[in-house]
Simulated assay, not measured.
Amino acid sequence: IDPPHRLLMGPGPVNVHPRVLRAMSADMLGQFDPEMTRYMNETMALYRRVFMTENRWTFLVDGTARAGIEAALVSLVEPGARLLVIQAGRFGLLLSEIGQRIGAEIRTLDIPWGEVASLEQIEAAITTHRPQVFAAIHGDTSTTMAQPLAGVGAICQRHGVLSYVDATATLGGMAVATDAWGVDVVTGGLQKCMGGPPGSAPITISDRAAVHIMKRRHVEAGIRGEDLDEGPGALIRSNYFDLAMIMEYWSEKRLNHHTEATSMLYAAREAARVMLEEGLEARFARHRAAGAAMSAGLRAMGLSLYGQDAYRMTNVTGVYIPDGVDGERVRARMRG
């Protein structure tokens, strides 16, 4: 295989950092080799810093970023329970669709594309709908808007609601301040600001959410021991995305669930190391500067940007294609 070299300037995937590519070429290890479990523990510690959290349950879900989204929702939302979703772009619609597929009762806070929800709107919607789980997209690449999340966790806790945030498009590029926001579960991906390949979904889970998930715990018959109790809650309707079992796999028990995607673990570990060596604030400032330069340059060309400047993601910029311009021809020329 010999793919052409491209400078990838879309919303993802991006060009993979050379160090990450090198890490992925390292040899396989047995999933319970001491060296392998040490790498797993190191990766958990690295992603606590990436997610800006002290959460014990910070690890990887094997699969693309959507695997993390689905694992979070199927493990948090019980069948028949109510899920409240901010719908302000394509990926809010995705959260609703996944919720429907797992048997949730969907309620939405509908916001015009290119805008964001206010805390007052969020609390009013929670008061009206009384969901089990509230879900939002941090940065939606379909609109390039970044939803403000400071204060959202406190609102959810005040109303006894669990909170979930999809930070796929912002993790590694904007501050994903999990503990400061007070949200319960956040998921991401490697293939955007983390500078890695698609195939691994970092996740962090609060103690409050972990208790809820473990109430739905079910251990497979082939590995169930007398010391492992079933949870009293509804069975999680996925085996592969059952966070209770995945948490046991990443815990000191190392209860077998799947075979960890070794090369993707290496990639995730190295991507986090690269980010943390640069420094969180330096990295976020670099993205802010690049985003501001892109916006200024596009406007200097007489082009119009999509959405509100105050809430624009720093790492994705949406621009209107002028009337009379064939966007596909422009993209084809750029590939040349």
Rank of each mutant, 00 (worst) to 15 (best):
A221W: 12
N256C: 11
E260D: 06
H218Y: 13
G231V: 00
R237Y: 03
M264N: 08
G233I: 04
L235Y: 09
I246V: 15
A234F: 01
H218P: 00
K215F: 04
W250F: 13
D229A: 15
A261L: 04
M264W: 02
N256I: 00
D227G: 07
F241I: 00
T262I: 13
E248N: 11
E220A: 13
L255F: 01
R254K: 15
G222T: 07
L228H: 09
G233N: 06
E252G: 08
H218W: 03
E260F: 06
A234N: 13
L235P: 01
A261M: 04
G222Q: 13
M247V: 07
W250I: 03
T259Q: 12
I246A: 10
S263T: 13
A221C: 08
I246G: 09
H257K: 12
E248R: 15
K253H: 05
S251W: 03
E226I: 10
V219Q: 00
A221V: 09
D227T: 14
P232F: 04
G233Y: 01
E220Y: 06
V219D: 02
R217G: 02
I223Y: 11
R217K: 14
M247K: 01
K215W: 03
T262C: 09
V219E: 00
F241M: 15
I236S: 00
K215R: 15
L255G: 13
I246Y: 05
G225K: 06
M245F: 04
E226Q: 08
M245Y: 02
E260I: 09
E248S: 15
Y240P: 02
R217Q: 10
Y249E: 15
A244W: 03
S238P: 03
M247A: 10
P232Y: 13
E220K: 10
T262P: 02
E252K: 12
S251P: 00
T259E: 08
L235S: 09
K215Y: 02
E220L: 11
P232V: 03
D227R: 15
I236A: 06
L228D: 05
L243A: 09
N256R: 15
T262E: 07
D229N: 15
M214S: 15
T259C: 06
M245G: 06
A261Q: 07
D229L: 14
G233F: 00
G222N: 09
L255V: 08
L243R: 01
V219A: 07
V219G: 05
V219F: 02
E226T: 14
M247Y: 03
K215I: 00
T259G: 08
R217V: 05
M264G: 04
L243H: 04
D242V: 05
P232K: 14
S263Q: 08
E226R: 14
M264L: 02
M245Q: 04
R216M: 04
R216S: 09
A244D: 04
E252M: 10
T262V: 13
S238F: 04
